[in-house]
Structures are given as structure tokens and as C-alpha cells.
Amino acid sequence: MDKLIIEATRSSPAIAFDAETSWLQIRGESYPENAAAFYAPVFAWLKEFLAEHDPAATVQVDLEILYLNSSSTKVMLNLFDLLDQVAQDGAPVVVNWRYDPDNETILECGQDLSEELEALTFNLVERPQELS
């Protein structure tokens, strides 16, 4: 299965999903004009990946989100729901939600999302402070 690589823009994140290593990364800001349309190819890839995925292999999801608008938050929850479903079926899924300690809004957003999920492991990971 091909990797899914989407370059970042000012209002949409960089996406790098690798089926071979089961490593999914999303980095950047998300307030696209139409969140459902932007994430449609991401959903398509993820559904295909999860259908073919070896349930013994750990899926690792790393997120470094600086800003999520409200519609992207909804879409992100739908994305996590797919992962939570395979986790409920026994596949190990680890989500690392990385946040800047001085950006409480993103921490809160991660907490809101993690409360909605049952089976996957959702880690809130504080990123080291940048040296200034």
C-alpha cells in the first residue's frame, strides 16, 4: 500500500501515513476551508489500511497540532473513532498527542478528544520547550 503524503499549507497540516511501519503522523495547523473535503483522502487511506492491517502490529499515531478549528476537531474525532474500533477488536493502537506546554488550548483539545475514546491508548505528551 502506498504511503499517504500531504504537504502542509498555512491552514492544513502535513500528513505522513506509512502502512509498512504502521506509523501515522499529522503535524501543523488545521482550519481548511472545508474540513470534510480536506480529510476525505485521509479517511479513504486509513480505512483501507485498517482493513488490511495485521492486528498484532502496533499502530502508532503521532500528532503535533498547533491549532484545530471546530470542524477539524469533529473530523479528528471521526478519525480516532476508526482507530478506536480496531483497538476494541484487539489491535494495539497508541496515539501520542504532543502539545507545547505554553499552549493550553491544544492540551485541552487533546483531553476533550481522549475522553471520547475507549480502547486505544491516548498519551498527552508535553513537547520540550524551545530554547529562546
Binding site: 474540513a35 470534510a36 478549528n69 471546530s70 470542524s71 476537531t73
Partner: peptide, 14 residues
């Protein structure tokens, strides 16, 4: 958060 997005892309969450 659990309600679907509208066609216009709005989620009623804003």
C-alpha cells in the same frame, strides 16, 4: 462533537 458536519462544512461547534 458527535453530530455530523453540515454540507457547508459547519459543525455547530464554533
Amino acid at each position: 462533537l458527535r453530530q455530523p458536519l453540515s454540507e457547508a462544512g459547519g459543525g455547530g461547534l464554533g
